[in-house]
């Protein structure tokens, strides 16, 4: 059995992530409460509206628990999820979890008419990237590595335990990005175990 990966299911395309995770060999749990968060080894914050999720995170007292979760366990944020993971959010400025040292500009490409699909290179493999009212990563901190870019703009980044994409791998065929995250979660589990033993 693979690790248990939660998908934050307050709003957004969490069901698409659930399908992609299942294809990647993980067990999936929808997370809407702290009790559910406590049962998972890693968490995906899906695409959707970051303002809606932020409001519900605070209202349902999930904001601090997820921030604490991120001290020990991996989180993968796509689009709105990347915005919530960032240390700084622009256009407009809004609070965020601050788990990934980067500056993200919301709706960086514009409105829906500017949504697009592009080919990107992930570790030597061509992959399709679906951008929907996507944010743009304007700055990455020194400890954050850029795993893929579209033109000059970073679109898939990793910092410490966490992964963020401004595109939607859950809306493409193939689950290589999700498989990568599942391996990150497995590695973090092994490291936590070796710390304890």
């Amino acid at each position: 059995m693979g690790p248990v990966i939660g998908v934050l299911a307050l709003q957004g395309d969490f069901s698409a992530h659930r399908n992609a995770l299942k294809q990647s060999g993980a067990q999936v749990l929808e997370v809407r409460s702290v009790a559910q968060l406590d049962q998972v080894d890693g968490l995906i914050i899906p695409g959707g509206e970051s303002t809606t999720m932020l409001r519900l995170l605070r209202l349902e007292n999930l904001f601090e628990p997820i921030r604490n979760f991120g001290q020990h366990k991996p989180i993968f944020g796509t689009c709105a999820g990347a915005i919530l993971l960032a240390s700084e959010v622009l256009h407009p400025t809004q609070p965020s979890l601050g788990l990934l040292d980067m500056t993200v500009e919301r709706n960086g490409y514009g409105r829906q008419v500017d949504s697009h699909i592009a080919d990107i290179d992930i570790d030597g493999q061509v992959a399709e990237a679906v951008f929907i009212r996507a944010p743009i990563i304007r700055r990455t901190g020194p400890a954050v590595s850029v795993l893929a870019s579209s033109g000059e703009i970073p679109v898939l980044v990793q910092g410490g335990l966490h992964l963020a994409s401004t595109f939607h791998p859950e809306l493409s065929h193939g689950s290589s990005v999700h498989q990568f995250f599942v391996r990150m979660v497995e590695k973090a589990m092994q490291e936590r175990r070796s710390c304890l033993s």
Binding site: A9, G47, E49, A80, Q112, V130, I132, L171
Partner: peptide, 18 residues
């Protein structure tokens, strides 16, 4: 088509919302 997937893609993002 890519265009239709982008159209339904935005609807995917609105799921679970008001």
């Amino acid at each position: 088509s890519d265009q239709f997937r982008l159209k339904t893609g935005l609807a995917e993002m609105l799921k679970g919302g008001v």
